[in-house]
């Protein structure tokens, strides 16, 4: 279920915590597993739990608690727009609307070609750079004006 590379990355995370506290690496392990599989199916969650010697339900609790884990398949590109108040005051909500219209999907949906998933996000701790958009969980895009959005989408085509 998990590649050698993923397991090696998980092993590296494990070194951060005391030997009897493997559970501490669970969040990272799930993140790494998601990177490999795109989303966390039940099987993947269970595989991670098994690897860390945890009850599967304990891993499920974590996989469903943290917002950046995908519990459904997502498109190749997951775009998360912050629409919280500070961002909204500087165009965050508008950027979201613009993306909806450009991609023809609503929040939580994936384009028919499986390319884009759009999500409404909560504060990303980057309000000063609004509108902000998180790309595939790991890359922050600042000042996402309509022009910047067009440019980013063109890059991804």
């Amino acid at each position: 279920m998990l590649s050698k590379e993923s397991l090696a990355k998980i092993d590296r995370e494990l070194t951060k915590y005391p030997a009897e506290q493997k559970r501490s690496a669970l969040m990272s392990a799930l993140r790494i597993a998601q990177l490999e599989h795109g989303w966390l199916s039940n099987d993947v969650v269970e595989a991670v739990a098994d690897y860390l010697g945890l009850p599967p339900i304990a891993a499920m609790e974590v996989a469903t608690f943290y917002g950046m884990f995908n519990r459904q398949p997502v498109g190749k590109f997951k775009l998360t727009v912050c629409t919280n108040l500070p961002c909204a005051l500087s165009g965050g909500a508008d950027a979201g609307k613009y993306l909806q219209q450009k991609l023809g999907i609503g929040y939580g949906e994936t384009t028919a070609d499986g390319k884009f998933t759009l999500q409404e996000g909560e504060c990303m701790g980057a309000c000063g750079y609004a509108p902000v958009m998180l790309f595939n969980n790991h890359t922050m895009c600042n000042h996402m004006t309509p022009e910047a959005i067009d440019k980013k989408l063109a890059e991804l085509e």
């Binding site: 951060k16 915590y17 559970r23 501490s24 304990a58 943290y66 950046m68 504060c123």
Partner: peptide, 27 residues
């Protein structure tokens, strides 16, 4: 010193939720 990466839960800013999360549980 080690870095631990959160994954999207505001509540983990609360210090004891943060500790739970650091222990690999729900925050």
């Amino acid at each position: 010193l080690h870095a631990h990466h959160g994954y999207g839960a505001y509540i983990c800013g609360e210090e004891t939720a943060l500790l739970e999360s650091l222990e690999g549980k729900k925050g």
